[in-house]
Each structure stands twice: as C-alpha cells, then as structure tokens.
Amino acid sequence: MTVFRIEITKEEQLRYISHLDYANLLQRAIRRAGLPAAYSEGFNPHMKVSFASAMAVGVTADAEYADVELTNNICQPEFFDKLKAVLPAGMKLLRAKEITSGRHQSMNALVDTALYEMKFPDDITADELQATIDQFNAAPTLIFVREKQGKGAKKGRIIKKEIDIKQFLASALTAGEADNVVLAAIKVSPLGSIKPIEIINALKINYLPTLDSNAVLINRKTLSAGGKNLMDLI
C-alpha cells in the first residue's frame, strides 16, 4: 500500500462544479490513468481518496489537497506523470509526495486556516472597497444571520442562526495586490467556520448595498495547518 498526497488546482473551467463532482472528476482521472487505486470494503466500495476540504460551487482554488491510496507500490515520477497526463482542463497537478510515515492524520482534522481572495465587480470603486475593509476591521463584532433549509422533522422550514463573522477570521481583512481584491484569512475548526460568500453578503448588508454578491469571484489561495503548507507536513 502506498499513499500519495497531491496538490491540485481547481481553475476557472471548474469553478461551477460541486465538491462531489470535483472528487468524481479526480477519481475518474485516476481510473483513466490506470493507477492501482485502493477501494473500501463493503457493499458499496468507493475509491480511497480523501480531500482536505470541501469547496463550494463558484469557488476556484490555487491549491487543493487529496490523499490517494494505492494497492501497489509505484514510484513518485510514474505516479506524477500518469496522473498529470489525464487530468481535465482546470485541474492541474502541482505536486505529489508519497506519505511515508505509517500513520498520518487526516488533512481534514489538521487544516486550521484558509486564505481566500474575493474579486469585487468593477461597479464598486477602490475607495468604496477600502472604506468597507476599514469599517469591517474597526467593528468589534459583525453579526450575520445564516439561513439553512430545515431537514428531517424541520423540512420545509428555514432555520435562522446568528453568527459573529469576526470570530472566524484569523486576521483583519486586507486589500489584495490586484484591483478590487479583498483577502480574508478564515479560521477552520471543528467548531465550524464561515464561507467567503457569507462574508461578502455581510459586507453587502452592512456597507455595500449596491453590490451584486453573485458578481464577486472567489478564489482560495492557500490552505494551511499551523502556518505550514499541507505538503510540508509529511
């Protein structure tokens, strides 16, 4: 048995696919590559591929991570070349590293910070955006009402929950290098997290009433654990 950790992208072409579809895409590519994938036991065997995070529809990523388990030993260059050759447009293989330590912790449990960049549409001026960032950073708390479709006995109802956005931010919002870009470092923990779109909606409600939230492009730049890149943890 061999496990490879891979660093792959989710680019513009794949912006609108869900996490599940993205996972499917990788699994089919692994099959096309003819790699000896390991499968779970049971009535409904599935390929042993685990992701570091689940990315929402509409979000791209400079780096996403997955651990891919294989049944046979295979050397890194062969694994890298075979997989790279079959990946679809928008999913680039950046790095692959064999996990040598016998037991590794799931990435899901390790990740603590995600850095997002949010590109605002042109009808928002740079001054407006800077003012928004400043006001947001100056506010002691910022309450956002999260709405969820009820499930089970609560089906058909909308469940509202108030959350303080600021408690989920690892640092203050900053302006990015490119025009109209805002950077947000979001804390990821077992206690929950916040989605970038929720920050955008909160900004709209509190400071930018004319903003069309759907027009903001979200990209995840990095995902890290204890300040380290996930590839460097192994």
Partner: peptide, 18 residues
C-alpha cells in the same frame, strides 16, 4: 459570474467536459 452564480447548477451552461 453575476449570471452564472445566480442560477441553479451553473455547470449545465459552462461546457469544457472531458
């Protein structure tokens, strides 16, 4: 994106499949 992010299942409209 203002159009695509406002509709359900935007990947229906963006092509580029394998």
């Amino acid at each position: 994106p203002a159009v695509l992010q406002a509709v359900s299942k935007p990947a229906r409209y963006t092509g580029g499949e394998v």
